[in-house]
Amino acid sequence: MQRFIEFVVRFKNYITLCVLIVMSFAMMSFGDLSRLGGFRAVIVGSIGWMQSVFAWIPNPVALKSENAQLRELNLQLSIESARGRKAMVENVSLRKMLDLRKRVDVDLIAADIVGKTTTQLRNYATMNKGSANGVKEGMSVVTDAGLVGHVVGTSEDFAVIQLLLNRDTRVAAKVQRSRVDGIIAWDGETTLALKNVPASFDVQAGDMVITSNYSTRYPANIVIGRVTKVEEETNSLFRKIIVEPSADFTTLEQVFVVAELPDEQRRDLERRVEERIRQRTMER
């Protein structure tokens, strides 16, 4: 016994260490304070009370960190908000386009505009659908708002559209209300001009202008725009009629290609007749 006591006294540090380590592990295996029920409630309550008493003291480090976090959160929310707004606008646009699809009885190929060339005399747009998707040269391109132009070139996956705001634009059109015919051409600005309308014909500001049955390039009854100004020209039999295009070319993002080519037989016949008349005129 004496030797045991001597042993314990001699190695008390190591024995204590071992005992306390075992106790620590035992407590760890016992678990956290939640098993102590009311004791935990007292501890948590006391700590909470002490912290709340001194909670009014500002913590510059924490404030700085919180500020940085809030700034980051603000940035993220701004991005989310912008995305949300964009999605909402896109949603409205796409819904309108879906509606357009229901309204027309021809096949439409949906495409996104991926590039635009809108310098003064070259207004073209590139879309992400090409010959592989059934797009062919000469097909008309529309949006839910109205006529955009026609396809002038295709590759396998892309196609180039000649917009209405182009110096080569000539569209047989008519005023929807009074059925007056004319030719739509680009006036060099952001508007179009309805030409060849005699001064005596009934055209008023606000009239809707649509594609005519006479057009060999575009399907009939597609909205082109609205008459914004009708001016009488001195020393002329015709009026100067300004048409605001319905399609917004500055924010053009989604378009539909009308999967229908102009009637080749009709175009061929008209071309032959024109040629014959020209020849007869020359013979005379």
């Binding site: 306390l20 620590s24 407590m27 016992f30 956290d32 700590i47």
Partner: peptide, 14 residues
């Protein structure tokens, strides 16, 4: 007081 796992700090500080 730190509501940590009981015994973890006790072991480390021992």
């Amino acid at each position: 007081v730190s509501t940590d796992v009981q015994g973890s700090n006790a072991l480390a500080k021992t």
